[in-house]
């Protein structure tokens, strides 16, 4: 064999070796990115509602367990009024007395009171005595008498709830019900938890209130108020919180009339609204949850100023199937059910 032929053969072997090495490196890079995007999905029941968890990144199973523990803690240690010795239970048990609570509970209450102030009290976490009378979804669900409502309505007054650092005091006769912000608060706490884990991105539903975590864009469906197995529109969004309040969620019928669970705190009765649902998108779970309730009660026009104050966006679905979308989210919104019409 000539020397030049030998050289060619060596070059060829070396080149093939280089190509295989490159292929392996590409393989490892692709494998790594796939590992990062590995999804773990699970469903459970917690906080009296359905929890759907989709985590993207390594250690999904372990991280999802942490998420579920965190949700149970939000309910049992902080916000449930039916859980003995939770922060809210202790506040309700001793009206007129300052109760020391966790910093998180104090912050959730402060944020809720701030929204009450800005919506003239239609949303109010001191509505506890009224929600007890209606007991939506509970064993004593009923239409309270006008006298019962008039009697308890005096106790609904957010301005009587005092928060000083981590001490909370309610007035005699009052009780707190954080049902309208509990799921959003759980989403806020999960975000803090996930930021200390290896999770790249996640979408988590706590009974329909959502946390979208990380840079990944998600397609979020807005439930069809007439068929809760379907969505009527989608939002393409990332790294935010989404909450919806709708008249279809908890309700009962009596004498041909429907009573839904979204109570106007100024009247003690279900809000008389032209809306079927309001979906609010903003950078806080508690605020998106509280705003969706407040906006449902206020109606479209009165909600716009409130939304602007919190830099929040919203989708309003009316009973006549028209839809209004705030400007900041219009480009991310698309109808999927053509029986609905976007109002111009």
């Amino acid at each position: 064999m000539k020397i030049s032929d030998k050289l060619k053969k060596i070059d060829k072997r070396a080149l093939i070796a280089v190509v295989i090495c490159i292929a392996l490196i590409i393989g490892i890079i692709v494998f790594d990115s796939v590992k990062k995007s590995t999804e773990y999905q699970t469903t459970t029941v917690a906080m009296g509602t359905v929890i759907n968890i989709r985590l993207f990144g390594p250690d999904g199973e372990e991280n999802s367990k942490l998420v579920i523990e965190n949700i149970n803690e939000t309910e049992k240690a902080l916000l449930s009024r039916n859980e003995k010795n939770s922060d809210i239970d202790r506040i309700n048990a001793t009206p007129g007395t300052e109760v020391s609570v966790s910093a998180e509970t104090a912050e959730i209450i402060s944020k809720s009171l701030d929204i009450s102030k800005k919506c003239e009290g239609v949303f109010d976490i001191s509505i506890g005595e009224i929600t007890k009378l209606w007991d939506f979804g509970g064993d004593n669900q009923k239409i309270p008498s006008a006298e019962e409502i008039a009697d308890k309505l005096n106790s609904v007054r957010y301005s009587s709830v005092r928060v000083t650092d981590t001490n909370v005091r309610i007035a005699e006769g009052q009780s707190l019900d954080l049902g309208a912000v509990g799921k959003g608060a759980a989403c806020d706490r999960i975000k803090t938890l996930l930021s200390a884990t290896s999770t790249d991105s996640a979408v988590i539903s706590v009974g329909g209130s959502l946390l979208l975590y990380g840079k990944k864009d998600f397609n979020i469906g807005i439930v069809n108020p007439e068929n809760d197995n379907e969505s009527m529109a989608t939002l393409r969004i990332s790294d935010t919180f989404v909450s919806t309040s709708g008249n279809y969620e908890k309700f009962f019928e009596e004498d041909g009339k429907t009573y839904h669970h979204i109570l106007d705190a100024t009247t003690g009765y279900p809000a008389d609204s032209r809306l079927s649902s309001v979906t609010v998108i903003c950078d806080s779970g508690v605020i998106s949850d509280a705003l969706s309730t407040a906006c449902y009660i206020l109606g479209y026009h009165s909600s716009l100023v409130l939304l602007e104050e919190y830099d929040a966006q919203a989708v309003f679905v009316f009973k006549d199937k028209t839809v209004r979308v705030t400007d900041g989210i219009k480009d991310n919104f698309s109808l999927t059910d053509e029986s609905f019409v976007v109002a111009k």
Binding site: V45, R54, V203, G221, T234, T244
Partner: peptide, 24 residues
Amino acid sequence: TAACLPERIVITIKGADKTDMITY
């Protein structure tokens, strides 16, 4: 998804179709 909350039973169909999650 459909759920019986008092009994803590959930039926869900795996995966996502048109949407990644639904808000309700």
